[in-house]
Design a protein around this nucleic acid. Structure first.
Length: 425
RNA sequence: GGGGAGAUGCCAGAGUGGUCGAAUGGGGCCGCCUGCUAAGCGGUUAAGCGACGUUUAAGUUGCUUCUAGGGUUCGAAUCCCUAUCUCCCCGCCA
């Protein structure tokens, strides 16, 4: 959520930011109008309340006619205060709802651009392997090796669901543990295992609601949402809290399943495990002070890259331009992994700095010093990594001509020492 | 699912209609005293939003907040309703 003060003090900055995100900037004037209206109402209301408080103090001391006069005056003020109260509530909720629907201001360093084509490749790591045969897609490899069953996934749940079987399931589990262990042991994160269902306040806190309701699975009877990412429960861990400066930075890593309706993606990535309704992800979440959040973003991105480097799978890092930036982010890097069968790099991680956008929505603050006022904390998160897509990348990058798949060395301890997965004859 | 109890400041806990942003204790911080990692004494210890003032700074003042929302009342931490959460008992259950 953007600070109302930013609209008052630097409206042009907000307008420019909205235009850079391909959004209409007329909303800025609307917000300024509502803000002025709100303050005008408050002035009148507070004056009346002050008078009523004064009268309330006098009533118990007064007797007879004097007392009756005080009560009469207070009684007369009442309805006007109630009316102004309703007006305040109305204007405040529309102001809040309008601002909640606005995306974050991109960072200065985020490149300006219209869409995906404006993203910038920051660096590449590893060389795509040259196969002396036509590399197969992970869905073909996985099915042949008995690692995945798409048909039964469709039968028991529907399209974009799949079942992992045998060594396919084990590889998924190995990847989860491998990633978590790296973040815990080598990158200094604390593991958390949060609920997969969260309430509405949590979804607002990280920015999924109110704007992206149609992307979420929701259980109306209980007013609960299935999490689209661990970012939601983990960032909301400190909602409505004031942290101490010494606690920061806080680094959490979490495995969760993630649930997305994928509304509007009909026809895209219909095969395989790239775009599905339920997938596993290991997430990293950071809380820090404003002066360190951009260093932390670099570190976070590096922590995600380490996973792919350890697996020895080529990838590139791309930086989102303003037009392609996520709603809550000020700056984002995507890790894109090499998928040989598709002959392209595909997103496997997104690492973002939200600055105080989520902090303000979720009221996550910290106290810089003992006598100082609380400030909003900066939050960051990044996938480390999307497990299903990593699973696919292992299959495609480590496939051999005979249809078998070599298990990367780093994963073997997690696979009971298995070195190669072969079709059972 | 049925029944009961509860939710107050950093923590514990009092307060059942006005003098309550809130006793008391603990913790924290500051100071004093004390020649010794103790005790004592004094002070201090919430957040949000406005108005006036200030512009790298500085305050003064008002309003709101005792889980949340609604109601009663001249006036609500206190009375009523609803929701949420917590605890206990019964039932069910991985």
């Amino acid at each position: 959520m953007l600070d109302i003060k930013l609209f008052r003090e630097e409206p042009d900055k907000v307008r420019q930011a909205l235009r850079n995100r391909n959004e209409d900037d007329a909303v800025v004037d609307e917000i300024l109008r509502m803000d002025e209206q709100r303050r005008a109402i408050l002035v009148e209301k507070e004056q009346l309340q002050a008078r009523r408080n004064e009268l309330s103090k006098q009533v118990p001391k007064a007797q007879g006619a004097e007392r009756a006069a005080l009560i009469d005056e207070s009684k007369a003020i009442g309805p006007r205060i109630a009316e102004l109260d309703r007006e305040t509530t109305d204007v405040e909720s529309s102001l809040r709802n309008t601002i909640l629907g606005l995306p974050n201001i991109p960072a200065e360093s985020t490149p300006v651009g219209k869409g995906e084509e404006g993203n910038i490749i920051v660096r590449k790591w590893g060389e795509p392997k040259q196969f002396d045969f036509e590399p197969a897609a992970h869905w073909d490899i996985g099915v042949k090796l008995g690692m995945v069953d798409f048909e039964r996934g469709g039968k028991i749940s529907g399209s974009r669901f799949y079942v992992l079987t045998g060594l396919g399931a084990r590889l998924e589990r190995a990847l989860c543990n491998f990633m978590l262990d790296m973040h815990i042991n080598e990158h200094g994160y604390t593991e958390v295992f949060p609920p997969f269902l969260v309430n509405e306040a949590s979804m607002i806190g990280t920015g999924q609601l109110p704007k992206f309701k149609e992307d979420m699975y929701m259980i109306p009877e209980d007013q609960l949402y299935l999490i689209p990412t661990a970012e939601v429960p983990v960032t909301n861990l400190h909602r409505d809290e004031i942290l101490t400066a010494e606690q920061l930075p806080i680094n959490y890593t979490a495995y969760t399943a993630c649930f997305r309706r994928e509304a509007g993606s009909a026809g895209k990535d219909v095969r395989g495990v790239i775009r599905v309704h339920q997938f596993n992800k290991v997430e990293m979440v950071k809380f820090c002070t404003p002066d360190t959040s951009y260093e932390e973003l670099e570190r976070l991105t590096q922590n995600a890259e380490d996973v792919l480097q350890r697996l020895n799978i080529p990838y590139q890092v791309s930086e989102h331009c303003t037009g392609d930036l996520g709603f809550s982010a000020a700056k984002s890097y995507d890790l894109e992994v090499w998928l040989p069968a598709q002959d392209t790099y595909r997103e496997i991680s997104s690492c973002s700095n939200f600055e105080d956008f989520q902090g303000r929505r979720a009221n996550i603050r910290y106290r810089p010093g003992p006598d100082e006022r609380p400030r909003f904390a900066h939050t960051l998160n990044g996938s480390g990594l999307a497990v299903g897509r990593t699973w696919a990348a292992v299959l495609e990058n480590y496939q051999q001509e005979d249809g078998s798949v070599i298990i990367p060395g780093a994963l073997r301890p997690y696979m009971g020492g298995i070195e190669v997965i072969r079709a059972r004859e």
